[in-house]
């Protein structure tokens, strides 16, 4: 995949998320999502949070204030967020969209990410949060489906981003 395909996809994701009524955007460190952060920042909409579970907490407050927040993180931070999901997001039914960079999957064989690479889908499945692996040609439809879940039905949902999706290389 070329760099420009990755940039186009990042543009398409940001434009679609904003167009579907998502905000605010709460970001934590992730190389896979870096192109998305750059675009969100230039469009004035990224708040960087120091740890992933804190971002989930802020999203919970924001969603109760009527917004449809997006929490962006690397899946290692999903490990940090399991209790926030299990004891806050799910039982209180807090609507929010998770956008998760999937380290430890596909061509990323880094040992420190392998376990979360295997666990990420399972964490969402067992939590009852619908999670969809982003697929280039389907991106707009996949985001629209998430908007139906989060913005309209006020439920949590997740988009899983393969490592190379925006051009990242291990």
């Amino acid at each position: 995949m070329t760099v420009s395909v990755g940039t186009d996809r990042a543009q398409e994701l940001c434009t679609t998320l904003l167009g579907q009524g998502f905000s605010p955007f709460l970001g934590t460190p992730c190389g896979i999502l870096a192109p998305v952060y750059e675009l969100l920042r230039s469009r004035g909409g990224l708040m960087t949070v120091v740890r992933e579970d804190n971002a989930v907490g802020i999203a919970a407050g924001s969603s109760m204030a009527g917004r449809s927040p997006v929490v962006l993180m690397q899946n290692s931070g999903l490990g940090q967020s399991v209790n926030a999901i299990a004891s806050l997001v799910v039982p209180y039914r807090m609507p929010m969209l998770f956008v998760i960079g999937m380290r430890g999957t596909d061509a990323d064989s880094t040992g420190e990410n392998e376990v979360m690479g295997r666990l990420t889908g399972t964490v969402f499945a067992i939590s009852g949060i619908p999670a969809t692996r982003l697929d280039g040609p389907l991106l707009t439809d996949q985001v629209a489906r998430c908007a139906r879940l989060v913005v309209e039905q006020r439920r949590p949902a997740a988009l899983l981003v393969p490592p190379a999706f925006f051009g990242w290389r291990p």
Binding site: P24, I58, A60, S62, A65
Partner: peptide
């Protein structure tokens, strides 16, 4: 996470 929830509302 109580303060984080408060921050999310206060925004």
């Amino acid at each position: 996470l109580a303060a984080d929830i408060g921050i999310g509302i206060a925004l």
